[in-house]
Structure formats: structure tokens, C-alpha cells
Design a protein around this nucleic acid. Sequence first.
DNA 1: CTCCTATCTTGACAGTGACAGGATAGACAG
DNA 2: CTGTCTATCCTGTCACTGTCAAGATAGGAG
Lengths: 217, 217
Amino acid sequence: MAGYSLGMKSEPPRLRPLAVHSPAADARPYHHGDLRAALLQAAEAELAERGMEGFSLRSVAKRAGVSHAAPAHHFGDAQGLLTALAAEAFRQFLAAQAARETVAEKDPASQLVAAGLGYVDFAIARPTLFRLMWQSDRPDFEVPDLGLSARAAYQHLIDQVAAAGGRSTADEAAVWALAHGLADLLASNRLRGVRSLEPEARDAMVADIIRRALPEV
Amino acid sequence: MAGYSLGMKSEPPRLRPLAVHSPAADARPYHHGDLRAALLQAAEAELAERGMEGFSLRSVAKRAGVSHAAPAHHFGDAQGLLTALAAEAFRQFLAAQAARETVAEKDPASQLVAAGLGYVDFAIARPTLFRLMWQSDRPDFEVPDLGLSARAAYQHLIDQVAAAGGRSTADEAAVWALAHGLADLLASNRLRGVRSLEPEARDAMVADIIRRALPEV
DNA sequence: CTCCTATCTTGACAGTGACAGGATAGACAG
DNA sequence: CTGTCTATCCTGTCACTGTCAAGATAGGAG
């Protein structure tokens, strides 16, 4: 649950040139060191603070301590940055599901419920990223990096539904819609009656609800 | 399904001053006549064409044939316009559910399924408006007009779940999440296996899925 | 007929994304 | 050590956006 971060290097890069003669306030070097990762990290923070609609490329650059045009070289334009961010988000979205699956019972039904819990975990922990993935027009799903990671998340769902005995399109749709609906409503801070529960009680209720999607199991 | 429109006057207002001496290209009068409704209509069209994130207040004004600052007098700012639009959307959202309910069987379970079909109808017919209502930060739900119409939609759901025998928070959440998840995924053009069905087949599948939310019925 | 007020316009400002051209520095060859 | 090459980053500019201030217009009340 804790510790998701998009920078992928925990150390803030900013490799200063060994301070040969720096007057201590020499500030940043001309070359950043790992600007691409820093921009992704800054973009996520900006998104979390100002929301999807208040997102600004220039603010991201400022937060990363860099000029307003610097992001262009790494991502092309704002859409490119958000596409890369969404791709990374889909990977962590799958990781959140996997984290639940490893601590769950190994039978297919329990694994399916665990994936649903991970789906919801991610939506609650990072609601703006969740919106970027599912409801925004800006990420370009034609870009292979994003298209593949999104498809991987979808395929994981399909596989689990099949393993749990789901056979029809309706079964797939029911499981997906239920998990997604819970996640989206919780991310938007609706469903307060569920969201305000203690973690254990909330998990139990979410699990109970998700099980309803597959009546025959 | 057809014919939703936010202008609420079907006639384009533009009451010209009876053409006393107009040289035929005298164009629009200084006062519009029903600018508020025209702006709501234009805003919906812009939203449908350019998407939530490409929305521009100046484009709305231009589409309504009016100066860029004209909307301010009726709505204050962009948030005010989108708040009014969302409030109207919630009313039509309820109307879409009511339309399905009137042609459905009158037992509580059928009425609940009908409401779910209306929920999905609206999301498919007007996806961007659906996003504005559920996933945007911009409408201000503290404004009574919007707060009340949103609450009315929520209350309608709660009442129907209760009438159909739902008793717990989990029952309410399951029904809402299932309908909402289907609607959102269909609005985003996911769930292609469902969306590409003929209307009758699609309705049958959506109904089948929604019935899963209340296992005891 | 006069004035009052709601309605709409024009003009300005800071902030935005994108682009062009220039500055910097690390790497590599000799 | 020197010179060049290239990826990286910066400054300056453009059209466009939302918001505010101030002025123009017209419909209606007195």
C-alpha cells in the first residue's frame, strides 16, 4: 500500500560536479542527471496536488527545478509526458494487484478477489493517477509502451476470470465492472459508507461485493 | 435515447428586433435573448467535440456567437458554467432512468434493473457529460443546484435498492458499483464485447449483470 | 421622456503549451 | 591535451486561455 513512487531512483539524482569551486549557492548543474525520472515524479506530485484539470507542464518543470521547455526533449509534449506516466501507472496498478495475490489463498476464486482488492487499493491510494489511466483523453494508447502495459492489465483480469470458472463475456464484464465501479466511486470519495470503514472491515466488504460477480462459483 | 438537449428551448432564441432597417447582414442584436440556455447548449457541444480536457470557455462563447467575456455575467466563471451544466446533466440522468422504468415491469427487481439500464444509456449517449458529473474536479457540488440534483440521483438509487430487498451498505454499494462500473467502462469505449452488441442483446446482458448485485433476490 | 439596470463588448493581464534558436557540457577521436 | 560532436537544457517568442475592469447598449420602470 505505501511507498509507491514513480521516480524509480529513491536517491534524488542531481549529481553535482563534485564541488570543485562551487560557492555553495552555485545551485544546480546545467545537466540534471536523471531528468526524465524526476519529471515523472514531479508530474505525479503535481497531478495529486492540483488534480487532472489543473495540471500544467510548466509547473512540473518548475517543481523539477528546470526550465519550462526542458520536458520537451524527453517527452515531446504534455501528452507524451502523461502517456509515459500512465504507462508506469498501469505497471504499478498490476503490482498492487500482485501484492494482494501473494498474501491470499491460492485457489482461483481467492486470487480473483485479491486482484479486486488490489484494484481498489490503487484507486484509493492514487486517485488522480487512476483517473489519468481510465478517464482522461490525454494519454495516447497508441504508443506501444502504454498500449502494452494497459493490455497486460486487461489480460490479467481475463485470465483470472477464466481460472475462476468464468466463461462468458458477461462474466468478464461483470467482474471488471464491479471492481472498476467500486474503485472509481471510492477514488472519487463517493461510497463514504464503505470508505470510512476500518481497513479490515472495508476489505471484507469489498471482497463480499466482488464475489457477487460470479454467481456460479 | 434520442433528443436529449440542454438548451431547453428548441427554437434558437436570437429574437431579432423585427428588422427595421437591417442591411441583411446586420447580424446579431446586442442582447441575445436567452444566452444562458444557449451557452449551456454550446458548452455541451464543445465538451462532446473537444473532450473534458480540451474544453475552453472562449470556444463556448464563440460557438454561441457572443464575446469571450459574455459567459461571466451568467455563470461567474468557467467553474460556474460547468457546475450549472452538471446540475442539468444529473436531472437528465435521472430522466434517462425514469424513461426505462416506465416501460419496465413494475416489480421492484425489474425497476431496479431498468434504472441500471437508464444509467448505462446515459453514459453511452453522453460520455463526456458523464465524466463531468463523476470524474471532474471542476463542478462545485457545494452549489445547491448541483448538490441537490446529485443527491436526488443518489437517493433514487438507495430507494430502489431498499425496495428490491437490499438491506445493507454492501447491497447499496454493490448495485451502485456494478451499474456505475458498466456505465463508465462503456462510456470510455472499453468493454467492446458488450458495446458492439445489438441494442436488444446488449440490454439483456446488462440486465443479467446488474441482477448479480443482489444475490438474495 | 429620462434614467436605471441587466446584458453584452472591448481591452488588458498573467499563465499556458509549443516552437525556434542558442548555450552548455560530457564523450570520443586524434 | 585539444578539437569536434551531440545530447541535454535554456531563453525568447507566439497564439491561446481564464479573469478582471471599464465602457457600450437596450429594455423597462417611473
